[in-house]
Amino acid sequence: MSLPMPLESILPSLFAGEAFRAAAIPAELPPETLMGNEAFAGFYSRSARPLWAYLARVSADPTLADDLMQESFVRFLCAARPDDGEVAARRYLFRIATNLLRDHWRRPRQASIEEIPEEFFATVSTAAQSDSRIVLGPALARLTLRDRQLLWLAYAEGYSHHEIAEVTGLASASIRLLLFRARRRIAVLLRDQDTQGGNRQ
């Protein structure tokens, strides 16, 4: 899928704020920190889908997920990151995406529906996607953005508390409690949904 217009014109408000500071272009980039086109293609093929899933499910907006995913990768490429292997690089990518998402939610809504190209509305939905959305979607929608992020990183991505702290910028000590509460909340919501579904049948 290609964007019919530059991303900067669709989401001008994204190019400032916390995410920009987190992945600001440094004055001098050492050559070893720059990723080549082929290396990036490999990394992209392994990381893009999980990242899009994270952004789409946490934001509940596939169009926004498209834009934020692209922006995350561009910033990832521009940033001087520690060369600690692919796992660390992916964590760094998720961190950029998390900050972008947070910045987006903090800003007032500016985009008009008329500015969004029509092709973005023509999304293909399979039965499996619909089922999954029905099961998790309503429960996730009733949680805060932070809870959604924590739950996704812990139970969909399988990150440890330390890694979640690194991605979200929260204190490592508080992750355990926050995650415990969020898990309890969503478990109750999922059980309620299940009970209501069973009653209807």
Binding site: F40, A41, W52, F73, L77, V135, L151, Y155, I186
Partner: peptide, 28 residues
């Protein structure tokens, strides 16, 4: 919770619309 999230991850990842990595690389 883990079953629900893993299932959601699998279906969402399969539905991800990906742009060419070359475009992103050149934009960077």
């Amino acid at each position: 919770v883990t079953t629900a999230f893993r299932s959601a991850r699998t279906t969402a990842a399969a539905a991800a619309p990906l742009v060419s990595p070359g475009i992103l690389w050149w934009r960077a």
